[in-house]
Structure formats: structure tokens, C-alpha cells
Simulated scan of single mutants.
Amino acid sequence: MQDAFDVTKVQAEIGKLMAETAKISAETSKINRETRWFPVIWATAWLGAVLAVGKIFFGG
């Protein structure tokens, strides 16, 4: 009887670890997608800053 309980306990632990692995994988995918857009965001911010400074100094 104890062996059956141990097997069930191990299977539950395996299921928990598989769910955690799936969650971490999804979070990694999300971070990778966001990382691809960071250069675009930085370029847009720099362009906006340069245009704002140019407007202030050159009165556009």
C-alpha cells in the first residue's frame, strides 16, 4: 500500500514540475519577444529627444 502511495506522490510531483517548466518556458518566450523590440524603442526615444532638442534650439 505504501508503494502505491509513493508512486502517486511521485507522479503528482512530476506533474507539478512539468507545469512549472511550461510556465517558465512561456515566460522565457515572452521575454525573448520583448527583447527584440528594445532597439526600436530606444531608437524612437532618441529620435524624439533629438527632435525635441532641435525644436527648442532652432525654433521649429
Score class of each variant (00 low, 15 high):
M1K: 07
Q2G: 11
D3E: 10
D3Q: 09
F5E: 14
F5G: 07
F5H: 10
D6Y: 11
V7A: 13
V7C: 09
V7F: 11
V7L: 15
T8K: 06
K9H: 08
K9N: 15
K9C: 13
K9F: 08
K9P: 05
V10T: 15
V10H: 07
Q11E: 12
Q11P: 06
A12N: 13
E13N: 10
E13S: 10
E13C: 09
E13I: 10
E13F: 04
G15M: 10
G15C: 10
G15F: 08
G15Y: 10
L17E: 08
L17C: 09
M18I: 08
A19N: 15
A19C: 08
A22D: 03
A22V: 01
K23N: 08
K23H: 12
I24W: 04
I24F: 11
S25I: 06
S25Y: 05
E27L: 00
T28Q: 05
T28E: 00
T28D: 04
K30M: 00
I31V: 08
N32H: 07
N32D: 13
N32S: 11
E34G: 00
R36P: 04
R36I: 09
R36F: 11
R36M: 09
F38L: 15
F38K: 11
P39M: 04
P39N: 09
V40R: 14
V40S: 12
V40Q: 12
V40E: 12
V40H: 14
W42N: 15
A45C: 04
W46Q: 09
L47H: 04
L47G: 05
G48Q: 05
V50G: 03
L51Y: 01
V53K: 03
V53D: 01
V53T: 13
V53C: 02
G54S: 06
K55R: 11
K55D: 15
F57W: 05
G59F: 06
G60H: 12
